[in-house]
């Protein structure tokens, strides 16, 4: 089994690691880089638990071959908060009880970030469709959708008040 030397930027840091050439980015992040916040729910693109941002786009890490990320920029859940401050989505998920078991949470947060970066004022329906690639079996989605709408409102409010985070 051949291993490839891969250079990329992960959560702001230039990183290099050796990984199975035919292995997934999901396995590489977990086993070779040690970022355990990326979860495997299916390994086949169906659940979104492994969602990461690649060059600012939401993707399933389980559907990317590790060597594909050469030169790319990856953000995982571990890179969502600032050093001393949670991302508004994280804060709203906490306050809105938008998680029960929490296994789906990293994927939802990143998918929601990708949505809000593109569309800061989504409707409920838009949020539901944008998050349809992320399965949650615990919550029935209600509180997740509300938390994302709340975060969107908060981000818009702080942007207009000029003290954007």
């Amino acid at each position: 089994m051949s291993r490839t030397h891969i250079n990329c930027t992960i959560n702001g840091d230039e990183t290099d690691f050796l990984s199975e050439s035919g292995g997934s980015l999901l396995n590489a992040l977990r086993d070779d880089v040690g970022l355990m916040g990326v979860k495997e729910g299916c390994g086949t693109g169906d659940c979104g638990a492994c969602s990461v941002l690649m060059d600012d786009r939401i993707t399933c890490a389980c559907l990317i071959f590790a060597p594909e990320v050469e030169g790319r920029t990856i953000v995982t859940i571990e890179g969502l908060a600032n050093a001393d401050e949670l991302h508004p989505l994280q804060q709203c998920f906490l306050e809105g009880a938008a998680l029960q078991c929490g296994i789906c949470t990293p994927g939802f947060l990143l998918a929601a970030k990708a949505l809000l970066d593109k569309n800061p004022d989504p409707t409920e329906t838009e949020v539901r469709y944008a998050l349809a690639g992320n399965l949650c079996r615990c919550t029935g989605y209600d509180k997740i959708i509300r938390a994302v709408l709340d975060a969107a409102e908060g981000i818009r409010a702080s942007a207009t008040s000029g003290d954007a985070a």
Binding site: Q90, F93, L94, E95, G102
Partner: peptide
Amino acid sequence: RSIRPDGLDKVTGK
């Protein structure tokens, strides 16, 4: 509606 004790670890991937 307090914030759950394990919440922070779960929203930060820890």
